[in-house]
Computed example of a mutant assay.
Amino acid sequence: MTTMFRYPVFPVLPGLGQTDIPEGLSRVRSIMAEPDYMDGDSDELIKPKKLLNPVKSSRNHQDLHRELLMNQKRGLAPQNKPELQKVMEKRKRDQVLKAQKEEQEAHKKRSDLEIELMKRRETLEQLELDQHKDDEEQENTPEFVKMKSNLRRTKQEVDGQERST
């Protein structure tokens, strides 16, 4: 049976006894060494500086920030949409208008041959759709119906061969 310690155990360092540890420090601080630059008396050390942000130090960024601050003080709201978004919307709008114009011109210039070809294409597409539906219906039919149709077909083939011989 082992006994549990009730008091924190400090490591015993060579040359130091239990009585040499200051009572006010916590256990962690007594184990860790404090950095030298925390004392403030060593002026010879180079102290770390905060790095400069190259974006904020640029002249363009400063001018833009100053302009935004002045507009805010005057009560002028900045433009609602960024320039890139405006350009993209204009480009999209132009593409839609161009497509509509091309479509209108295509409707106006259709000859009799084009109209006849369009009708034939529509009928072919309709036939393909009907055939596709029939194929799907055949796939969805039960197995015994398929077998019955196969038996009929083979019976008709056998009857046809008997008559020819």
Rank of each mutant, 00 (worst) to 15 (best):
N71A: 11
Q131L: 01
L97D: 07
P78M: 13
E34A: 11
E125H: 02
E105A: 12
R110V: 11
K119L: 08
K81H: 11
I21T: 05
N53M: 10
E125C: 02
S42H: 08
L45W: 06
A99S: 10
T154L: 11
D36T: 09
E128Y: 08
N80H: 09
A77H: 12
D130M: 08
D41C: 03
L113C: 06
V87D: 06
Q72K: 13
K101E: 14
L13N: 03
V55T: 04
R59Q: 09
K98H: 08
K90M: 12
L151G: 01
Q72L: 06
T3A: 07
Q161V: 05
E143T: 08
R152E: 07
R6S: 12
K90Y: 07
L117G: 01
R6P: 02
L76W: 05
R93Q: 11
R121M: 09
L127E: 12
V12P: 00
E23N: 08
P8Q: 01
K119H: 07
K90G: 06
E67Y: 06
E89Q: 13
S57T: 14
N150K: 13
L68C: 11
Y7H: 10
L113P: 02
P35E: 14
S164M: 03
R120H: 05
G40W: 02
L97F: 03
A99Q: 13
V96S: 06
P48Q: 01
L64W: 09
L25V: 00
E139Q: 12
L64G: 05
L25F: 05
G17V: 04
L151C: 07
S57C: 08
A77Q: 15
